[in-house]
């Protein structure tokens, strides 16, 4: 033990050697595949019910605000860009610029959630919620559409919240110089998660908002 303590001083300089960026990245990708399993199941459920109720889905989708969906798509795509730019900035050892890009990402994520709040609020206002008056007059297919709409966009929204928490944590570590231009894998992992959430929205948007 005492020998270990003697050498520990020396090892502080080599502490990065014990870091496994490759393993860290692989762990993140494997986790992302479990997310694909989660959302993939829901997309298959969506496909199945759309196959059974094609006309009802078109009718129900007309309730959705396409502009709102498009704006949220642009917001998420932009936030994905700023995460990547943040990684580039950190790699180039420009901590200030990195933090700026990460803040833009956080603002975009929050804007997305605010839009979602108003969107859901408008639906609730029209009586479209479980056991809501409008929903009870609808056909089975339309009810199915809104069920899927709430569960899938809701779960996606939850992922935005988790992604923001992950990004916030990573930003704190950048601020404390725990993550640096030579040690940025955790920032990249946060980015990978954020991009997956973006990809899920890339599919949710046409499937729920763009049916005619």
């Amino acid at each position: 033990m005492s020998q270990n303590i003697d050498t520990s001083q020396q090892e502080i300089h080599e502490v990065h050697i014990h870091r496994d960026d490759f393993g860290s990245k692989m762990g993140m990708w494997l986790f992302l595949f479990t997310e694909v399993l989660l959302f993939g199941g829901m997309f298959i459920l969506y496909a199945s019910y759309r196959f059974i109720y094609p006309n009802e889905f078109v009718l129900a989708a007309s309730e959705l605000d396409m502009l709102m969906g498009a704006v949220n798509t642009v917001i998420l795509l932009t936030s994905s860009l700023t995460v990547v730019l943040g990684i580039v900035a950190l790699q180039k050892n420009n901590k200030k610029l990195c933090m700026f890009f990460m803040w833009v990402t956080v603002v975009c994520g929050l804007l997305f959630l605010v839009n979602k709040y108003f969107e859901w609020g408008a639906k609730f206002h029209h009586g479209i919620y479980p056991k809501g008056p409008a929903l009870q007059d609808m056909s089975e297919g339309e009810v199915m559409y809104f069920g899927l709409y709430y569960v899938m966009t809701g779960l996606h929204g939850l992922h935005i919240v988790v992604g923001l928490a992950f990004i916030g944590f990573v930003m704190w570590q950048i601020k404390k110089d725990i993550l640096t231009s030579t040690n940025f894998q955790r920032l990249e992992n946060a980015g990978l998660y954020w991009h997956l959430v973006d990809i899920i929205w890339i599919f949710l948007f046409p499937l729920f908002y763009l049916i005619h």
């Binding site: 994905s80 860009l81 991009h195 973006d198 990809i199 948007f205």
Partner: peptide, 15 residues
């Protein structure tokens, strides 16, 4: 179109 967008995100943003 969604698949093409995904390919862009995976290949470039996710490196």
């Amino acid at each position: 179109i969604a698949t093409v967008k995904t390919m862009f995100v995976i290949n470039f943003f996710m490196h």
